[in-house]
């Protein structure tokens, strides 16, 4: 179906496209789920819509209410779109070092922004948001890191879509942020295909982001359940940018840097399967397009230059 009553009804049901040029063998295939085809251009539209509708059903959210959320970008943009159409005010708490495009987009969609210190990254944004929430008890914090509706959006949407389009799926690879995509789609796929491997690709940031982290005050999203995953890879900016560029050069897909990190993990698995002589159908998430990251320097110059530019930025 390609006709919808309104924009919100068009969230999800994204295309799954094969990557014949990047797939390493006829029986080891890579498949990209194009989540950038969602209304605001990212996978986060699914979680934003699901979290707001769940809060409405529970009676936590009434027309005219204010929503507060720690977000470094995409979730904020998605929430802003849904909030605009449903009549809520949105305040985002985000690290001051996210890309300029993201801040501008949020304002365009009508969100208000409170910045948190760059050092400390999203941890600090989460801490600040919890503090502000305590001072404003009538504001509703949906809290993507612990909201079951975030994972449920993928259990009910992304997971079933993947299995319907690719019944032969052997691996699912996605980014590990709030963990909603992996937990939700991962659980659904595991329930219906017990042998499927669920693989997390986690961004490895520069020194600045980890710099001041105390090992006793780390952060693990409440949604995270290690038992859903088969393996978890840490991917640095150099590998992420290299694969992001490869995806555009060879398959014509213009994606953001976090997708490059996911593709890096997916291609690593594909190479192992070729070596082991096993067939594989590896589906991975294209989280968003590259538009919002043009100012980061990831798309121009040498890999060394891109790596330097991304140092200290929250690129995924």
């Amino acid at each position: 179906m390609t006709r919808y009553d309104d924009l919100l009804s068009s969230v999800g049901r994204t295309p799954l496209v094969g990557l014949p040029r990047l797939s390493p063998a006829p029986n080891v295939r890579l498949w990209a789920k194009l989540e950038d085809r969602n209304p605001t251009g990212s996978v986060k539209d699914r979680a934003a819509l699901a979290m707001i509708e769940a809060a409405e059903k529970e009676g936590r959210l009434k027309p005219g209410d204010t929503i507060l959320e720690p977000t470094s970008g995409n979730t904020g943009i998605s929430l802003a779109m849904v909030a605009k159409l449903k009549g809520y005010r949105l305040i985002c708490v985000m690290p001051e070092n996210v890309s300029a495009e993201r801040t501008q987009l949020l304002r365009m969609w009508g969100a208000e922004i409170i910045t948190s210190q760059a050092a400390g990254g999203s941890n600090e944004a989460v801490r600040r948001a919890k503090e502000i929430s305590a001072q404003n008890p009538d504001w509703v914090m949906l809290y993507q890191y612990g909201n079951p509706a975030n994972a449920l959006a993928h259990y009910n949407g992304t997971g079933p879509e993947l299995l319907a389009d690719l019944p032969e799926i052997t691996h699912f690879v996605a980014g590990l942020g709030t963990t909603g995509t992996l937990m939700g789609a991962g659980r659904y796929l595991r329930e219906h295909k017990p042998d499927v491997e669920i693989v997390a690709a986690e961004p490895r940031y520069g020194e600045l982001v980890y710099g001041l982290r105390n090992l006793d005050e780390g952060f693990i999203p409440e949604l995270y359940d290690e038992t859903v995953l088969t393996s978890r890879f840490s991917v640095g900016p150099r590998d992420a940018v290299a694969k992001m560029r490869m995806l555009l050069e060879q398959e014509g897909i213009f994606a953001g840097v976090s997708t490059g990190a996911i593709l890096h993990a997916a291609m690593g698995i594909a190479a192992k399967c070729v070596k082991a002589g096993t067939a594989a159908d590896i589906a991975f998430i294209v989280c968003d397009g590259g538009w919002k990251y043009l100012s980061t320097g990831a798309y121009e110059g040498t890999l060394d230059e891109a790596e330097d530019q991304l140092d200290g930025q929250l690129w995924a």
Binding site: S42, K44, T71, S72, G73, N74, T75, G76, G121, S122, N123, A125, V126, Q144, Y145, G175, L176, G177, T178, T179, G180, A200, E202, P203, R204, Y205, V209, Y210, R213, N214, L215, G218, F219, I220, P221, E226, L229, T230, S231, R232, F233, S234, S258, A316
Partner: peptide, 29 residues
């Protein structure tokens, strides 16, 4: 690769391996 999925402290090492130690931080957008 996260050692929690390899065998934890019993994870095997070979010559030339690279080990990274990092604090758990919030990702996501």
């Amino acid at each position: 690769e996260d050692v929690r999925f390899l065998g934890g402290l019993d994870s095997e090492l070979s010559d030339g391996d690279r080990i990274d130690v990092l604090p758990a931080v919030a990702g996501g957008q």
